[in-house]
Amino acid sequence: MRRTLLTLTVLAALCGTAATAPASAADRTPTAAETTTETMTTTTADTSTEAPSVWEPAPPTPSFDYPAGARCDFPVHAEAILDEVVQRVLETHPDGTPKRVAYKGPLVMRVTNTATGSHFDADAGGSAVVEYRPDGSQRWLVLGPVLTTFRANGGNVPRGVYTIDGAYILDITADRTKTLTMLHGGTDDICARVAR
């Protein structure tokens, strides 16, 4: 419990406010305090606006397909078999589009080697605060597991499909290059799990 509180404090500091710290991955149900309408004000010079922050269902998690060699050595398909993710807009850009959004809730992604039918059900139900930037880049501050992919030469992790778990930052450029900064935790190579 002490480690979780320390990690939340670190993530809150990275987010710039304690009010935006994600709940732990085990905390799947919004508390009464979380479901009340709150506002968050920024003091930066980017003229961001206040946004009501109530938990609501997030858009469905999209499935994905990659041919052999794109992410794994074989063709791979992934789809959500459990998706109860909720979101809360914490801050908006001046045009009203989301700038900072918190996500949490159960998410299980089934990753299948479509050449053999071998599959693995990956827990991807981490909690995150995602900053959406005008240039299309993103910064994810995450606590718990998330499923993501890396293309060849597309970041600081080898090509593949991974569950990343722990406390970490994922920076994604507009061209989808990803930089993973682990604070605590590790990665699980899902291509290796479904290679048979």
Results as ranks from 00 to 15, higher is better:
residue 103 Y to R: 02
residue 131 E to M: 02
residue 97 T to F: 09
residue 115 A to K: 15
residue 120 F to G: 00
residue 145 P to D: 02
residue 127 S to C: 03
residue 151 R to A: 14
residue 100 R to I: 14
residue 154 G to M: 04
residue 146 V to M: 14
residue 119 H to I: 00
residue 113 N to W: 03
residue 103 Y to T: 06
residue 154 G to R: 05
residue 154 G to Q: 01
residue 96 G to L: 03
residue 96 G to D: 07
residue 107 L to C: 14
residue 135 D to S: 07
residue 142 V to G: 03
residue 132 Y to S: 07
residue 98 P to Q: 06
residue 136 G to C: 13
residue 125 G to C: 03
residue 102 A to G: 13
residue 140 W to P: 03
residue 117 G to I: 06
residue 94 P to K: 03
residue 103 Y to S: 09
residue 155 G to D: 05
residue 136 G to N: 10
residue 96 G to N: 06
residue 135 D to T: 12
residue 154 G to Y: 02
residue 128 A to P: 14
residue 106 P to R: 15
residue 133 R to Q: 15
residue 94 P to L: 07
residue 140 W to Y: 14
residue 97 T to G: 15
residue 93 H to E: 06
residue 140 W to N: 01
residue 97 T to N: 12
residue 95 D to K: 05
residue 108 V to H: 00
residue 110 R to K: 15
residue 118 S to M: 15
residue 96 G to C: 04
residue 130 V to E: 09
residue 126 G to K: 03
residue 150 F to N: 02
residue 150 F to K: 01
residue 113 N to V: 07
residue 115 A to C: 13
residue 103 Y to C: 03
residue 111 V to M: 04
residue 132 Y to N: 05
residue 153 N to F: 07
residue 94 P to T: 08
residue 100 R to F: 14
residue 126 G to T: 00
residue 98 P to R: 12
residue 139 R to C: 11
residue 111 V to Y: 11
residue 100 R to A: 15
residue 113 N to P: 09
residue 138 Q to S: 04
residue 144 G to F: 09
residue 140 W to I: 02
residue 124 A to G: 03
residue 101 V to Y: 03
residue 138 Q to R: 11
residue 123 D to L: 06
residue 136 G to F: 12
residue 156 N to D: 11
residue 138 Q to Y: 01
residue 119 H to F: 11
residue 115 A to G: 15
residue 125 G to R: 06
residue 150 F to H: 04
residue 132 Y to P: 06
residue 121 D to F: 02
residue 114 T to D: 02
residue 111 V to A: 01
residue 94 P to S: 00
residue 102 A to E: 06
residue 97 T to D: 04
residue 150 F to C: 07
residue 127 S to M: 09
residue 96 G to R: 04
residue 147 L to M: 08
residue 131 E to D: 11
residue 131 E to R: 07
residue 124 A to H: 00
residue 113 N to I: 05
residue 152 A to T: 01
residue 147 L to F: 05
residue 127 S to L: 10
residue 121 D to Q: 12
residue 146 V to P: 00
residue 109 M to W: 04
